[in-house]
Amino acid sequence: MAEPQRVYHGQSHVDALLDDFRAQRDAFYMPDAVELAIWFHDAVYVPGARDNEERSAALLRKSLDPARALFLTAWTSLEGPARSNMQREWVSLS
């Protein structure tokens, strides 16, 4: 169950992302990496904080080997238009 301030970014949000992802899993270049990114993308949430995505990425880095974490972290730090096909895939899910 999500905390009250996480109305949108609770488990139902993650479940919806996972459902969408699994329906098109074969279309992704690195589906396992995308699934991990979904699980971690909103792992840290402090209302009003501007670094929630960075903190979520840091948690991911602590949980994975450095090379995989670096790859996945790219998705959590997007600004402006997505710059690659993999980033566009991630943005389309979230």
Results as ranks from 00 to 15, higher is better:
35 E>L: 10
71 F>R: 09
6 R>Q: 12
93 L>H: 00
45 Y>W: 04
15 D>M: 02
17 L>S: 01
17 L>R: 04
64 L>T: 05
68 R>H: 06
34 V>W: 08
30 M>K: 03
72 L>V: 04
67 A>L: 14
59 L>K: 00
71 F>T: 03
60 L>D: 03
42 D>C: 00
64 L>M: 10
18 L>P: 00
1 M>T: 09
36 L>T: 11
25 R>G: 09
38 I>C: 05
58 A>N: 04
7 V>F: 12
94 S>Q: 12
39 W>L: 14
67 A>N: 07
80 G>M: 00
32 D>Q: 09
59 L>D: 03
37 A>I: 02
67 A>I: 03
88 R>D: 02
19 D>S: 11
27 A>T: 07
68 R>L: 12
85 N>S: 11
79 E>F: 01
37 A>N: 01
39 W>K: 13
26 D>K: 15
77 S>C: 13
48 G>W: 02
39 W>N: 04
12 S>C: 01
31 P>G: 05
46 V>T: 14
38 I>F: 07
81 P>A: 04
88 R>M: 05
59 L>I: 15
27 A>K: 12
11 Q>D: 15
55 R>N: 04
53 E>D: 03
2 A>Y: 05
11 Q>C: 04
73 T>E: 06
72 L>G: 00
24 Q>C: 08
44 V>F: 14
24 Q>D: 06
74 A>L: 12
66 P>C: 09
28 F>C: 07
6 R>K: 10
4 P>E: 08
59 L>F: 07
30 M>R: 07
63 S>K: 00
50 R>I: 07
88 R>S: 11
30 M>L: 14
66 P>D: 09
9 H>I: 13
21 F>V: 09
60 L>T: 03
36 L>M: 03
27 A>V: 02
33 A>D: 13
5 Q>E: 15
39 W>I: 15
61 R>V: 12
88 R>N: 01
23 A>K: 15
56 S>I: 07
26 D>L: 07
36 L>A: 03
83 R>G: 03
44 V>I: 15
93 L>K: 00
72 L>H: 01
14 V>I: 15
12 S>L: 14
12 S>Q: 14
11 Q>W: 13
79 E>K: 03
85 N>L: 12
63 S>N: 07
52 N>P: 07
22 R>I: 01
52 N>V: 14
42 D>L: 05
65 D>R: 10
87 Q>M: 13
4 P>C: 02
35 E>R: 12
1 M>Q: 10
78 L>I: 09
47 P>E: 12
50 R>N: 10
